[in-house]
């Protein structure tokens, strides 16, 4: 493994400035350490050996940005991560708060592990065809990746272990088939899902949401951007609707904390109250 933080703060700012100047995309609100690592990973994947060379490629090759955005994105870790959360969703939250015709928003989907998990939970409850799910993603290339719903086989071991902890009545193997070292999930799971590109700073979010599932994505932004994102999410939600973030994320000291009631601390489940 390469040693990290070879990119110093000045080089970091130069890279961010080059992206902003050339493409109008603002990465200045990212969490520092994780974003440095993401840039370094993209450099390795594209065989770019210096930050000068990265800046030059970004400036001269206008198609590279799509590849770069795809390469810096951080994949979701696994399906049914935190099985207790999905049990809580299945047994309490969805039956109580998600009705026929409800809108569900999953922002900033990257590899789609959480989206597939949600679809399976809804399918088992017989609700998948009765809700409108919008999945948004940052990069252009990601729309196709998400719709393909294909995952490396090596990730399936943990997925299966998590699914068993979730203790479903169905068999996980019913939802995918293995080909060429990948697990292809049943496209029926995502048939009704609207997958589209979306950018928090410039775009209008889908409205009237009854459930927003936004786990382990805010961690990649600084506090100021987290506040700004939460304002948009809060405004997109109906009163009495549910917001879920990662188990080690919370809305404490967020500008929007007062709009929410924490209804399950272990799983970071909030209800919008006003």
């Amino acid at each position: 493994m390469e040693e990290i933080n070879n990119i110093g703060i000045i080089e970091y700012r130069n890279i961010i400035k080059a992206i902003s100047d050339n493409y109008g995309i603002d990465f200045s609100h990212k969490s520092f350490t994780a974003f440095v690592r993401s840039i370094e990973r993209a450099m390795v994947l594209n065989n770019i050996r210096s930050t000068e060379s990265l800046i030059s490629t970004l400036t001269t090759n206008k198609n590279f940005i799509h590849r770069f955005i795809s390469d810096i994105s951080i994949e979701e870790t696994e399906m049914f991560r935190d099985p207790n959360l999905w049990i809580e969703l299945r047994d309490n939250i969805i039956p109580q708060y998600v009705k026929k015709g409800s809108n569900i928003w999953v922002p900033e989907v990257t590899s789609g592990d959480e989206l597939i998990t949600l679809a399976i939970v809804l399918k088992e409850l017989g609700m998948l065809e009765h809700v409108r799910i919008t999945a948004t993603c940052f990069g252009r290339n990601q729309v196709d990746i998400i719709k393909e719903a294909a995952f490396p086989i090596k990730k399936m071991e943990i997925n299966i272990a998590n699914f068993n902890r979730y203790s479903s009545s169905s068999k996980f193997s019913e939802y995918y088939e293995e080909r060429n070292n990948r697990a292809y999930f049943d496209h029926e799971l995502l048939r009704g899902v609207n997958v589209k590109q979306f950018e928090f700073i410039t775009d209008e979010p889908p409205q009237n949401n009854h459930l927003v599932l936004y786990r382990n994505k805010m961690i990649y932004y600084n506090k100021r951007m987290q506040n700004s994102i939460m304002s948009k999410i809060t405004d997109s939600m109906s009163i009495g609707s549910i917001f879920i973030c990662g188990v080690k994320e919370n809305l404490e000291s967020s500008n929007n904390e007062k709009s929410f009631l924490l209804i399950n601390e272990n799983e970071s489940i909030y209800k919008k109250t006003n």
């Binding site: 994780a34 690592r37 080690k248």
Partner: peptide, 17 residues
């Protein structure tokens, strides 16, 4: 991660080692 400015950041990047 321990960041400049005395705050933590957490990350779900792939496992290392």
């Amino acid at each position: 991660y321990m960041e400049l400015g005395n705050t933590f950041s957490l990350s779900t990047e792939p496992p290392v080692n």
